[in-house]
């Protein structure tokens, strides 16, 4: 019998929708994973040349240096409004925003709410790491009760600071939302689910079905004061309970998505 022929094949390499530049993110920060997933989805859909991204204010402020496509940098929290302007005059382009929890759920709460309410045909990638990274670890609107930050040094006291906002739960209530899901980046299986959701969100936009958002539970090893690995464990042990994974809104038009895939 003839010996089977094997060929060494490239299985994985850096996405062409990312630039060659290394990121400024801290070691183990999951921003890099989110960037990669978005870029891979854009590669797979073949839409790099038709995609326009909008960077937030926060650690991802320089996202445009890392994505190999047209990009704008928004004012803090205003990315959904800016995306609205861009998309309305570029209706055949794919427009996405990349926003952190301070940007989206605090200072930009009005803009995200109304973009979703209008059913704005944009995709939002929402990075929830329960803390303000860029300014050095202050309380975010998604900081967990009891969680220590530099502005809640004794832990978030709900009597003083109130409760965290659950954006998927809120935005999924709006009729304009077509696809609103929460995924996590704390292990490989969940990262793979996150990528599928990002793909679905971009497909929703491509089909013109309305507002799509993927919330990604993410880590901030530096400001949480943990190793990269410990931080992923902290997501699994603390954040997933406060922010349950799952599909909060899936427009009936997207029949292919399995309910509760992310749970």
């Amino acid at each position: 019998m003839a010996e089977k022929e094997w060929i060494e094949t490239l299985i994985y390499t850096k996405s062409g929708s990312l630039t060659e530049l290394g990121t400024h993110y801290c070691p183990g920060c999951t921003h890099g994973i989110s960037h990669r997933l978005i870029a891979e989805v854009i590669d797979e859909m073949g839409i790099r040349e038709d995609t326009i991204g909008i960077a937030p204010v926060g650690c991802a402020v320089f996202a445009y240096d890392y994505f190999n496509m047209d990009f704008a940098e928004a004012a803090h929290g205003r990315a959904p409004a800016m995306a609205t302007g861009l998309k309305r005059v570029n209706p055949d382009k794919i427009v996405f925003t990349y926003q952190g929890d301070g940007d989206l759920a605090s200072i930009g709460a009005a803009e995200i709410m109304h973009a979703a309410g209008r059913g704005e045909n944009i995709t939002v990638i929402f990075i929830n790491n329960a803390i303000y990274g860029m300014t050095g670890g202050q309380m975010a609107p998604t900081t967990l009760p009891g969680q220590r930050t530099t502005s809640t040094p004794l832990g978030r006291d709900i009597e003083v600071h109130g409760f965290p906002l659950r954006m998927c739960e809120i935005l999924s209530q709006l009729d304009g939302s077509a696809y609103v899901v929460r995924r996590s980046l704390h292990n490989v299986a969940n990262i793979r689910r996150a990528k599928k959701a990002i793909r679905q969100a971009f497909e929703v936009q491509r089909q013109g079905l309305g507002f799509s958002m993927v919330e990604l539970l993410s880590s901030c090893p530096t400001n949480w004061g943990m190793s990269a690995d410990e931080a992923l464990t902290w997501i699994e042990e603390h954040m997933v309970e406060a922010y349950p994974l799952g599909d909060y809104k899936v427009s009936p038009s997207i029949a292919v998505t399995k309910k509760d895939e992310g749970r």
């Binding site: 089977k4 094997w6 060929i7 060494e8 094949t9 490239l10 299985i11 994985y12 390499t13 850096k14």
Partner: peptide
Amino acid sequence: TVYRLVPA
């Protein structure tokens, strides 16, 4: 970057 031997 990942490489794998794959049947031709």
